[in-house]
């Protein structure tokens, strides 16, 4: 869940409380200082350089590459205009990749949020020893892709895996977890949800604990059921956070790579060949850099749209 900060997303909408006497409110008081310009370059210089070289320039270069064909060693040869894009968007193969990615992204997001809510709601009860459960529920936050893949690959292993043994023991039919297209997709979804759960739980729990207790007390007096309270008090109160975690889960899922690489390599029958994995494969397996660049641009557009949506919703709460 915790990706590199360079790829991460901004902080929670709950972040900014307005109080007086803060720098933020005194902006107007500062006067333009000629010297500040030099300081600004000194302070911003390193970051600008890095972002320019590793974020802005490559975007332009990717766009450029996507308009050409590339040869054996990845050099551009023939200018083809938009034909890489046209080929992609008319290829059943690529469209199916797009389809499976969308399915995966929404399945992961919905299940992660639903389970996160269940866990957070349970763990927000004031019971003795609840702290222990909170810690255990957040445990998967410390698991990186490679470790998660090892754990779950063993569980899904067809011959000696845990599920295979368990279903033999219980005389249940064997599910070919990693060789059947549908099952493989679910295997990856389950693993991703499991990895995401710790982080999502922690954020939702935090949001729930900041809901004023007076609301619940009032509801209790009126005899409202706990189900009613959950849907009519908890959910509305935490909706900004809910939106925030949903969208970062969504964005991160679009960028899924590690688990695919470790668990299914995009197979079977391309059933898990998602966008980022495809880019990697087309570029660094097949050497088709031009096509991979076009795919990169499409991915960027999708992610940029969701990020914009996120900014839009955050806008009112964030000081520019």
């Amino acid at each position: 869940m915790l990706k590199s900060p360079a790829q991460s997303t901004p902080t929670s909408p709950l972040s900014v409380e307005k109080t007086k006497n803060k720098i933020a409110d005194q902006e107007a008081k500062f006067t333009l200082n000629a010297k500040d310009k030099y300081f600004a370059w000194a302070f911003l210089g390193p970051s600008l350089l890095i972002l320019g070289v590793f974020i802005f320039y490559p975007m332009v270069k990717t766009l450029y590459l996507s308009l050409f064909l590339t040869n054996t060693v990845g050099k551009t040869t023939v200018f083809v205009g938009l034909s890489n894009y046209i080929n992609l968007l008319t290829s059943a193969d690529y469209l199916s990749s797009l389809g499976v990615t969308l399915f995966y992204v929404f399945a992961v997001t919905i299940i992660t949020i639903a389970l996160g809510l269940v866990l957070a709601n349970l763990a927000s009860k004031r019971l003795p020893g609840i702290g222990l459960f909170r810690t255990l529920f957040s445990a998967t936050m410390g698991v990186s892709v490679s470790v998660a893949a090892i754990f779950w690959l063993f569980i899904f292993n067809p011959s000696t895996g845990f599920l295979s043994l368990a279903s033999t023991f219980l005389h249940l039919p064997q599910i070919p977890w990693l060789t059947d297209p549908t099952a493989a997709m679910w295997a990856v979804i389950i693993t991703t949800v499991w990895m995401n759960l710790g982080f999502t739980f922690l954020i939702l729990l935090g949001a729930m604990s900041s809901v004023p207790t007076t609301l619940y007390e009032a509801a209790n007096i009126e005899g409202a059921s706990s189900r009613f309270q959950f849907f009519h008090i908890t959910i509305p109160s935490i909706s900004p956070t809910l939106f925030f975690v949903s969208i970062i889960t969504l964005i991160e899922s679009f960028k899924s790579f590690g688990l695919i690489d470790l668990m299914t390599k995009g197979g079977p029958t391309n059933a898990t060949n998602m966008l980022v994995y495809r880019i990697y494969k087309d570029a660094f397996y097949s050497g088709n850099f031009a096509q991979a660049s076009a795919e990169s641009i499409i991915l960027t557009i999708i992610i940029a749209l969701f990020t914009l949506l996120q900014f839009k919703v955050l806008e009112k709460r964030v000081n520019y």
Partner: peptide, 9 residues
């Protein structure tokens, strides 16, 4: 499969 592009690149 992986090695080929590593070598070339």
């Amino acid at each position: 499969d992986e090695a080929v592009q590593k070598i070339i690149q």
